[in-house]
Design a binder for these strands. Sequence first.
DNA 1: AAGTTTGACAACCGCGCAGGT
DNA 2: AACCTGCGCGGTTGTCAAACT
Length: 368
Amino acid sequence: MGRTPCCSKEGVNRGAWTAQEDKILTQYIHTHGEKGWRSLPKKAGLNRCGKSCRLRWLNYLRPNIKRGNISPDEEELIIKMHRLLGNRWSLIAGRLPGRTDNEIKNYWNTYLSKKLLTMGTSNSESQMPKRIASWPQLPKTSYDMKEQSPSKSCSEDYGVSSIHSVKSCEIRLDSEKEVHPTGGEKVADISNSWRQFLEDSLMADVAEELLINNVNPNNDCIVQPSQIQPADAFALSNFSGDAKMVGKKSMLSHHVDSSLALSSSLPGIDFGMIQDFSVENLLQPAPYDVDIVCPLVKGQNDRCDKGDGDHANCFAKAAEQGMTQIIHDNTLEQPRPCLREPSPCPMDLDGFDHFFDYEENWENKTNG
DNA sequence: AAGTTTGACAACCGCGCAGGT
DNA sequence: AACCTGCGCGGTTGTCAAACT
């Protein structure tokens, strides 16, 4: 038993593509779309391996591919994201429009890594945002443990695990676990969670696609973009392991409402509300301390209960009180029967808007 | 001028995963 | 459950031109 080769190795063109081959491939894909790579060469009349066709299309022929030098801004983003994610080139590329994972990988391997090494800054904590540098290690996820890459990656350094995300939505992370009497043990969870959320945000495009396609996590009604909850993403991230497959409908529908997954993801943490989950924003140094704890009621695992406003107020109070640890009074919480209606979220965000609003830079926020 | 090294980038390869049967 | 297929990913290799000796 063995894996069948993707194509016959003999009699197949290899090496550089000719202009004629490019033309044939481009015309075929324009007519038939990007699918069936294995059979594409034969149908298109190309004497190439299907994988080779796919690679040529994705890395070179695809529309909107940006050629030319990496700009300083792009370089900075690559460096930041590599610190965060390690060699997750496809994810990094996803945040650089027009750039391919292969291009970024090559750029890193041939230039950037050496440059950083020369500067003595590659992956060094001294160059990391202070708060990120102080983050504790995360236990490896099952996925990370399975990946035994010979070269130690940044993601291993920081314990980053799998990737899923949402964009412009509420962060509402409930748990079935008991509320800790002090919430103190949740502090590390929050910092870990925040780190993971940075990574999660990279899959925003996938989440958007899911939403556009009206993917329904619970198979009972259509979900609108504003209603997808990060809890969904976290449930997925805990369960599925590999980000690249999250975009598939079945994954979402199968796992999102898994209370089992939820219960093991982010116990008792509520991040309140954040408006912009773009990586560019999330990578900004956080002006707040991550020692805010807002445990929720055991067993209330629905994702739009009316406690949202309370939790936001909790954070607002935390901000006013210098970001010290506070315990949310959860006695008022009542689960709502509907998981789909947008939460009214009567937020009182005075004094805490810098946590939710990243449109202005942090210095403006913190300096006045 | 010729040979060697280096850099940039394209392309290949093996593997893991999800889905289908 | 086992197997096969297709896809996508990260790591590696190949190629070529420029720079260097």
